[in-house]
């Protein structure tokens, strides 16, 4: 459905009426035997956050606290791309850090593939790209991937293969022997992405992957995310570029001042319930008049009947004001 809509926007003329429910990837994931992961629950979703609350204590004389995340629950199914959006300071990064065990939850719990995220082994299958990443400036791109590969316990041959493959994937082969100190923002973001993928994780957490990246680089990163999605990798990402979120995400959560104010499948969120959209091809002005009267004419090919969409941007502004 998403694809049809996309094609229509791109100016394709003849589009079929097919409006079938897309089968979410999550459903196939649980039906098949899980043969390579031993100690995880086969049906557990990629990410499960239950009633997460995070309170920061501010060191000062008066015991001040900041409520960064408030009773947030969300689930990311296997193979799903989940977008977390919200204004600055709404708690997106905090949620991700708790999920990765970098911060301790004040209450509530998070799990990754059924394993509690306070345990180290839950991180075995996760790749993380922090916001505004900086890596060790003294290392080159190859050395960076080599280092993270070692830390993840890859063998020498695996590291070599992954190194070559990932550098190619993020298009940094030409700069692989340069130290990261001389990398531009977009290049750092890309090596960050490569680093997140080094152990072939099944879940990738991306905190603003396209922040500060130029439009074409940003497009490359979007394509990469779509590619990962094709491979069945679960992704949770936060971004301020709503158009991109709309393009890549299956589900979206809008977070505002620590609360998850809206959540759901993207199609559901941005469809307007009480309106219907009719798209006509080769319609004359007179016909349009008739259609307006009759709502449907016989010589007219109905190209699409469905719910018109608002944009995610409009929804975002509505929910966070």
């Amino acid at each position: 459905m998403e694809v049809d809509w996309q094609d229509w926007r791109d100016g394709r003329k003849d589009v079929t009426i097919e409006v079938c429910e897309q089968i979410p990837v999550t459903h196939c994931a649980s039906t098949v035997t899980n043969d390579i992961k031993m100690n995880d629950t086969p049906d557990a979703p990629a990410v499960e956050i239950e009633h997460l609350t995070k309170l920061f204590r501010i060191p000062s004389l008066r015991k001040q606290t900041v409520l960064a995340v408030n009773d947030l629950s969300l689930t990311v199914g296997r193979g799903e791309v989940y977008g977390l959006i919200g204004p600055n300071g709404s708690g997106k990064s905090t949620t991700m850090k708790v999920l990765l065990g970098l911060l301790h939850a004040t209450s509530g719990k998070c799990s990754i593939f059924g394993r509690d995220s306070s345990q180290v082994d839950s991180r075995k299958d996760v790749g993380f790209l922090p916001e505004n990443p900086y890596f060790y400036k003294h290392l080159t791109a190859s050395e960076t991937l080599e280092f993270y590969g070692r830390v993840c316990g890859l063998t020498k041959a695996e590291r070599r293969d992954q190194n070559a493959r990932l550098l190619k994937l993020v298009d940094l082969e030409h700069a692989k022997d340069r130290r990261l100190a001389g990398y531009s923002k977009g290049m750092l973001q890309r090596i960050g992405l490569a680093q997140a993928l080094v152990q072939n994780p099944r879940l990738v957490v991306l905190d603003e992957p396209t922040a500060g990246v130029d439009p074409s680089g940003s497009r490359q990163i979007r394509d990469l995310i779509l590619e990962l999605k094709e491979q069945g990798i679960s992704i949770i990402l936060s971004s301020h570029l709503l158009e991109q979120v709309q393009e890549v995400c299956d589900r979206v959560g809008i977070i505002y001042k620590g609360d998850l104010v809206r959540e759901g499948r993207l199609e559901d969120l941005i469809s307007i319930e009480d309106q219907t959209e009719i798209i006509l091809k080769n319609a004359s002005a007179a016909l349009l008049e008739k259609v307006r009267a009759l709502a449907m004419g016989e010589s007219t090919e109905v190209i699409s009947i469905g719910r018109p969409r608002t944009t995610l941007e409009r929804l975002f502004l509505e929910e966070t004001q």
């Binding site: 196939c28 316990g153 890859l154 293969d161 072939n200 099944r202 491979q231 069945g232 990798i233």
Partner: peptide, 19 residues
């Protein structure tokens, strides 16, 4: 009937020993 895991393996060449 292909799991996400299997698809992923296809994309990355061989499965990594650590998995």
């Amino acid at each position: 009937h292909e799991t996400p895991d299997q698809k992923r393996t296809g994309y990355s060449g061989a499965a990594l020993a650590t998995e």
